[in-house]
Design a protein around this nucleic acid. Structure first.
Lengths: 205, 205
DNA sequence: GCCGACGCGTGCAGTGAATGCAAATTTACT
DNA sequence: AGTAAATTTGCATTCACTGCACGCGTCGGC
């Protein structure tokens, strides 16, 4: 059998029920306007049970983010020898931008409208940033004293945040070409900056 | 008299009493371990009164940040014609780094140790980022469609975050030369990236 | 100097998120 | 079945935060 016990299946089921109920309620009436009691009722569990699946309320809102992180991690670690981290990221963004649902956009707008939620999102983004920094460090073959990978990754993350804020103003249907046209200058920006950074500050011989 | 009525003086006094008490308690026993009731008791006011001066608990922790923002805003708006925004920022950072107290470092370490506080700090940082973006846009003479100022400002903010995290590992006494040596490459990084970004995406004739 | 208007501090009651604990229910294994 | 484990749940509690209303001092005009 491919499945583990009934137990695990039910757990996964409950987790998804909570997430789905919460996300729909968030999209429908807003984040602050949705209480954990509402979510629990919609998911058919008790309020207390929610905390057995998610550390807190915001973690439900951002639960899809984790999958995204794993996907990026996979793409970065399995990238072919000829492709650098920046190129891998470029393709990753273009491909994930295509798979954006209506609900995603609605939730993104909710996150953007709230100061607190925006900063929490940035915290998640910094996880991706770390992945990137590691991959770039690998490309550059730099040691722990070299700040260039971290600076480049931070710039990338920040730049894409700007890009997303800009995109939110435009109507949702984004073709792959449009996304690529927006992303490529950012990649070029960081690439140029990277080459301008002198080199590892010190290289103990 | 230079002062307004007794009323305003007392208000300022109360505000500082709250801030001082809170900051010391935070530094002494940690943020989460300090309740609003503790702060109120130490400041000699009621819990309810705190909310008359600060919107929330974190706002007390970051109250000094606002002064910093105003200082930067002043420095940017009053900069001489020959000095660009990047250079102004450079000098601003070098000079403010010198005025760092022991308590500042302690609080910075507390903020850095907590995920939630870190993201809130980043939210404040994005206020500075906006100031910078406006100043850079001014330098470049770019219109609202030009994303370069925002990208550059975001990169700067992100890069300085990396820098600060790196500095935290080292012992506190930073000379102006050391700070400058760390800051200058970042400025160069963004400067190079900025020149690589093609130009305003569209310029409607 | 007196008095009304206003602002400020405060207590009280209540909401919502989050945690610890122990009982109850469900699942797994023999 | 029957026991051991995990899962779910209710209950009590803490803490940040808000609305409301009352009291008290300050500030203005007279």
């Amino acid at each position: 059998m491919n499945e583990a016990g009934l137990r695990e299946r039910k757990k996964r089921q409950t987790r998804e029920a909570i997430a789905r109920a919460a996300l729909e309620l968030f999209a429908e009436r807003g984040y602050d306007e949705t209480t954990l009691a509402d979510i629990a009722a919609a998911a058919g569990v008790s309020t207390r049970t929610i905390f057995a699946y998610f550390p807190g309320k915001e973690d439900i809102l951002f639960c899809d983010f984790q999958a995204l992180r794993d996907t990026l991690a996979g793409a970065l670690s399995e990238r072919p020898a000829g492709k650098d981290a920046l190129g891998t990221l470029r393709d990753f963004i273009v491909s994930t931008a295509a798979a954006k649902t209506e609900l995603d956009s609605k939730l993104a707008r909710i996150v953007a409208s709230d100061e607190t939620l925006s900063s929490h999102k940035r915290a998640r983004l910094s996880q991706l940033q770390e992945l990137l920094a590691a991959a770039i460090a690998d490309d550059l073959g730099s040691g722990p004293d070299d700040l260039r990978p971290q600076v480049a990754a931070a710039s990338l993350a920040a730049a894409f945040e700007v890009l997303e804020r800009h995109d939110r103003a435009l109507p949702p249907p984004h073709t792959a070409e449009e996304v690529a046209a927006a992303v490529d200058p950012i990649i070029a920006f960081v690439h140029a900056g990277l080459q301008a950074l002198p080199a590892p500050p010190r290289r103990p011989a």
